[in-house]
Computed example of a mutant assay.
Amino acid sequence: MSDTSVKNEESIRNDGRAGPLRIAVVGGGYIGTTVGEGFVEHEDASVVALVDIDESVLAEAGEELQVDSDSRYTDYETMLDAESLDAVLIGTPHTLHYDQILAAFDRDLHVLCDKPLTTDLDQARDLVERDEEREKVLMVGYQRHLYEAFIQAREVWNEEDREPRWITAEVSQDWVDRFEGAWRQNPALSGGGYLYDTGSHLLDGVLWSTRLTPEAVSANMHFLDDDEQVDGRANVTIRFTNGATATFSLSGETPCMREHIRMWDEQGAVALDSKDWEPSEYVEIDEESGEHRPRLLRSEQQTKAEAFLEAIRTDEEPVATALDGLRVTAVTEAAYESARNDGSFVAVDPDDVALD
């Protein structure tokens, strides 16, 4: 953050007064508490309300986030009507995001929503259109936009003579066993399976750092259910308008988490590797000098809370936008359609994924 703090910028408060932004946390689970703690610890924000349908979760998260007992709710709309707020952090199951974002929009609030933006393509399109008409911030919780490794990769592919042509990406973890019986494997709440959960980050990381425009998607999946809604493993291929291809391999059946991405052009490649949810390591590869490991300034890496507050203060586009969310949803929905239809390529609407 710059020396000019949020609390000195009166215009960002809904009531026009100075002071920390008043934030409500929606969902007292992992995202609500971990990202919410970032706001608790920030001098320019204050978590003033919390909502969760589970009263035991509500009590535990309320203590952790230091929310007064009379500002803890089990109904979202009741909280929005009762509390004076500037912003909401939405950390609820995927299929709830759209309605909860709309309710926040109706009250002219800033929104930080966990990924994915939505699990419905029409809803994602609608949010992009509505967001363009608003003056408040809508940020999606794709944290790889804050990782120095992905920022470095994005800078490489922003060079005039560089464009990735061949991309491989994989991610694995113990998702199937860990979340058996949890909402992440309930399609009414998750919207899908492993691809819509951890896989959403992998797709976004590639799409954001390369800026490529998807053209068509093919996929095959191992589904955990007879209705073919919840995948535990997936292989996805994306064809891009520049002729490049990306292949994604995702498994929720391994004993630990690993993520590996390689992006190649005629000059070389960038390689990004992560384990156990740590920010990615970064290597540049070229024919002449071999491997080069630039120094990553991890001490300067922003949290989601810091990035969200900075976007509000500066009135600039957040690091992960509604359009980023739409691009991922468009590719993900095409992948599920393909997997349910023998893996044939499914075209992606260019209006959903083009950056220009």
Rank of each mutant, 00 (worst) to 15 (best):
A246Y: 04
D225C: 13
G232K: 01
C113P: 07
P255K: 08
A246R: 05
E160W: 09
I151S: 06
V346T: 10
K115N: 01
F308V: 01
R125F: 01
N341H: 07
H110Q: 11
G192L: 05
S2I: 00
N220R: 13
W175V: 03
A271C: 11
Q123A: 03
F248A: 06
H222T: 11
H97Q: 05
S289R: 12
I285P: 06
R17L: 14
D226Y: 08
F345G: 03
I285V: 12
D108K: 13
W264I: 08
V328M: 02
A271S: 13
I90F: 10
V176T: 04
A49K: 05
T329I: 00
L203D: 01
A45K: 01
R327E: 06
A320S: 13
Q173Y: 07
D342I: 02
A339W: 04
N14L: 13
I167V: 02
I238A: 06
Q229S: 09
V283Q: 08
F308K: 02
D106C: 06
R13L: 04
A87E: 13
V270S: 13
D75I: 02
T303L: 15
A182N: 12
R165K: 15
V353I: 10
T303D: 10
M79W: 04
A59C: 07
L323Y: 10
E159I: 05
D106N: 05
C256V: 12
I101R: 03
L80H: 01
Q229T: 01
R262P: 09
C256K: 15
L250M: 11
A234L: 06
E266N: 10
M263G: 05
T247I: 10
V156S: 14
T329S: 05
F39T: 05
T237E: 01
D356Y: 15
R107S: 12
D99A: 13
S218P: 11
V25M: 09
V67K: 02
E10P: 12
R239M: 06
S249V: 04
M263S: 02
T241Y: 13
N186M: 11
V51H: 02
Q66F: 03
K115L: 00
D204Y: 14
A339C: 02
I12P: 09
H94W: 12
P279Y: 09
E316I: 05
T210Q: 15
D86K: 02
R258M: 11
D52N: 01
D351F: 14
L80D: 05
G325Y: 10
F223D: 00
H110C: 00
A59Y: 04
A334L: 06
D120A: 07
E148Y: 02
L202W: 14
T198E: 15
V48N: 10
D265E: 11
R340K: 10
D81W: 10
E310I: 02
T254N: 09
Q123D: 09
E77D: 08
V176S: 02
L50P: 01
N158I: 00
D174R: 06
K7W: 11
E163G: 04
G27R: 07
V47A: 03
L250D: 02
W264A: 05
T314R: 15
E135W: 15
L323W: 14
Y147V: 08
A59P: 01
E43L: 13
S84V: 06
R184K: 15
L326W: 09
A61W: 04
